[in-house]
């Protein structure tokens, strides 16, 4: 069982979380070319190794998280709040 350390709720089984997807896709501006949008929507790096991805603590605090996980082993290296300002606040108040 993968366990994810939620910054608010602590370490929980991943069955409490919902997987979002790639956390590193930067969607282009609305007026970007069709080609740029095609690549962002349809193409994936599909990383073999460590990647940043989004999970939501659906059956907990409902926060969206950025999780760094190894796709080969499922080992988790870091968990941050997806909302950058909140993450900053958490770090300052630690």
């Amino acid at each position: 069982m993968i366990q994810i350390s939620c910054p608010f709720c602590g370490k929980r089984d991943h069955s409490e979380f919902s997987y979002g997807g790639d956390g590193q896709i930067n969607y282009p501006s609305l007026d970007a070319s069709q080609e740029t949008w095609h690549d962002a929507v349809f193409l994936r790096e599909n990383i073999y190794g460590r990647q940043i991805e989004t999970w939501q603590h659906l059956y907990g605090c409902r926060s969206w998280l950025l999780v760094e996980r190894d796709t080969r082993t499922h080992e988790i290296f870091s968990v941050k709040l997806a909302h950058a300002d909140w993450q900053k606040m958490m770090e300052e108040n630690r």
Binding site: M1, H14, S15, R69, T71, H74
Partner: peptide, 16 residues
Amino acid sequence: DWYKSYAQKGNLPIVQ
């Protein structure tokens, strides 16, 4: 299992 993976091992929530 819903999340991306290259590990040939499954996880328990799907078993359930």
